[in-house]
């Protein structure tokens, strides 16, 4: 009985990888006023940005209910005795807590381990994929936990924003507040460190922001995985992928769009590079 891997919709793992590696994804909830959507299930990227442009109320996000986790655990428990749940940073959302509490409700039926990735988007996704690959090859839960522990410190991320307004409004800005209030127009660059949003730098133009993201990726001497994600700025992402192809094979770069949940907190124009590697 292979170990089953569970993650959240924010890990941004491409659908074909989800199918191939049999990963269970718990959708984070998205609200426009009274209407609730399951991220990626009831609403996709195009629908989201269309609504964002026309809706009077700004969207908010919410932790999936304990029930959503419990039902997934129960379904998987019919096929396995070991489940590994990898969640996005507990310092940014209550998802990890919800996953943990629902796991406690399942006491005895199945061994469930919940890991706080202290990360998000594909940086989180890389670790989930590693875990799922190991599970597919027949590794036991303890071995997979070890793989996860080894790889979590190897993921890194930098993201260029056009505005920090959304991050601020969602209460996730953290120390990146230092990048706000600039008198000159700037493109803020942020990172995630120890699960929290931190400032990385400022760029005067979009072009310079893309340069900086390249410099960030190039600071890794050994890159195992790389991803470029965007929220409603595909052309910039294409340009970035092209630039990055000088340091990493283009066909191996995951080129995806962030989920609407991320879009809610970053606004359009987000450009993210995630790497799994060593400096």
């Amino acid at each position: 009985m292979p170990v089953k891997i569970v993650t959240d919709s924010v890990a941004d793992i491409p659908p074909e990888v989800i199918d191939e590696l049999d990963i269970s994804v718990i959708p984070v909830l998205l609200r426009f006023g009274e209407e609730t959507f399951r991220d990626g299930v009831d609403i996709n990227n195009d629908q989201f940005y269309e609504r964002l442009a026309t809706s009077k109320t700004m969207p908010t996000t919410a932790v999936p209910s304990l029930d959503m986790f419990a039902r997934t655990y129960a379904r998987l428990a019919e096929e396995t005795d070991e489940i590994l749940v990898i969640m996005l940073s507990s310092k940014l959302t209550g998802c990890y807590n919800a996953a943990l509490q629902s796991a406690n409700l399942m006491e005895g039926e199945c061994r469930i381990e919940v890991v706080d990735s202290l990360s998000a988007v594909m940086a989180e996704g890389f670790v989930v994929i590693k875990a799922a690959q190991a599970a597919k090859e027949g590794a036991k839960l303890d071995e997979i936990m070890e793989i996860v522990r080894r790889n979590l410190p190897r993921v890194d991320i930098q993201a260029a924003f056009t505005t920090l307004e959304f991050l601020k409004r969602g209460g996730r800005i953290g120390l990146a507040q230092a990048l706000m209030g600039s008198i000159l127009k700037i493109n803020p660059i942020i990172t995630l460190k120890d699960g929290l949003v931190k400032p990385a730098g400022r760029a005067r133009s979009r072009e310079k922001a893309i340069e900086r993201l390249c410099r960030f990726a190039a600071s890794y001497s050994n890159i195992e995985e790389m991803a470029v994600e965007e929220a409603a700025c595909p052309d910039d992402a294409d340009l970035l992928v092209k630039r990055l192809s000088t340091i990493f094979p283009e066909e191996r770069i995951y080129r995806t769009r962030t989920t609407p949940v991320i879009g809610t907190h970053t606004g359009p124009g987000l450009l993210v590079v995630s790497v799994l590697g060593d400096k």
């Binding site: 919410a62 932790v63 209910s65 304990l66 959302t93 209550g94 807590n97 919800a98 509490q101 601020k168 209460g171 800005i173 507040q177 230092a178 706000m180 209030g181 600039s182 008198i183």
Partner: peptide, 19 residues
């Protein structure tokens, strides 16, 4: 009440330049 158990209150951020 369930959301309150899982979440944490937000600290409001000022939008003034940090000069």
């Amino acid at each position: 009440t369930e959301a309150m158990r899982l979440r944490k209150p937000q600290i409001i951020v000022s939008d003034l330049p940090l000069t």
